[in-house]
């Protein structure tokens, strides 16, 4: 996935992709911040890219919201630490979760350097409105994260966030395929990734 950070910043208050994702995946909205469950959200630039932010960060990016979600790393630490194989890397690169198998140990939450994983401290069902019957909710004691709309890709649809974006700032494609739209876009401009120095090889690229 390639994200055009400048296009995304055209309307800083826009939450179309977040709302689309939350609706598609029954992501709960808790009033208590400590219980927060996030799949896709916005983070200030300096926090999304701690290695990039400096005292002299360009005004165009300083403290500006950057769209962040699971990076579907090539070398995912969450997968390495999961004791039950409830999360694993699929052949196509998606870091998938099996909520049936998650025992809620939260090793993956600790392992993920991007904060992409959320734990359900309470039963999320009452905090989901409206419920989408085509996608399961989670239960208390289960970790969840972005699944790259695996259920939509399986039926030939684009991820919900990509589809919802008015600015077409999110481009989904096969990074292994040199002809894919994502790869073509990567050739056009300089891109950054979140915390690549950690060796996770994140697969979300940001055009800056």
């Amino acid at each position: 996935m390639v994200i055009d950070a400048r296009k995304c910043l055209k309307d800083e208050g826009c939450t179309d992709c977040i709302a689309a994702c939350d609706k598609a995946h029954n992501v709960p909205h808790f009033t208590e911040r400590a219980h927060e469950v996030k799949w896709i959200w916005k983070e200030p630039f300096d926090r999304a890219f701690p290695d990039q932010g400096s005292r002299y960060t360009e005004e165009a990016f300083r403290d500006k919201p950057v769209l962040v979600f699971c990076n579907h790393c090539e070398n995912p630490p969450c997968v390495r630490v999961c004791p039950t194989k409830a999360t694993w890397k699929r052949a196509d690169g998606i870091v998938m979760m099996d909520w049936h198998r998650c025992i809620g140990c939260r090793y993956c939450v600790a392992g993920c350097p991007y904060g992409s994983r959320s734990f359900n401290w309470v039963n999320p069902r009452p905090y989901i409105k409206p419920l989408n019957p085509d996608f399961p909710t989670r239960t208390k004691g289960v970790v969840e994260k972005c699944n790259f709309c695996e259920e939509r890709l399986a039926v030939g649809k684009l991820p919900a966030c990509v589809e919802a974006c008015r600015e077409k700032a999110l481009v989904f494609g096969n990074l292994e395929d040199p002809k894919s739209e994502a790869r073509q876009l990567l050739r056009t401009r300089f891109t950054i990734r979140r915390k690549p120095e950690l060796g996770t090889d994140p697969r979300i690229y940001y055009l800056v």
Binding site: T15, I18, A19, D22, W41, E43, D63, P65, K129
Partner: peptide, 20 residues
């Protein structure tokens, strides 16, 4: 209220630099 809850997720508007 849905839109309200979604927008609450954004970084705190206490930061004055947020445009709108």
């Amino acid at each position: 209220s849905w839109a309200l809850r979604v927008s609450r997720r954004l970084p705190s508007p206490a930061t004055p630099r947020w445009r709108s």
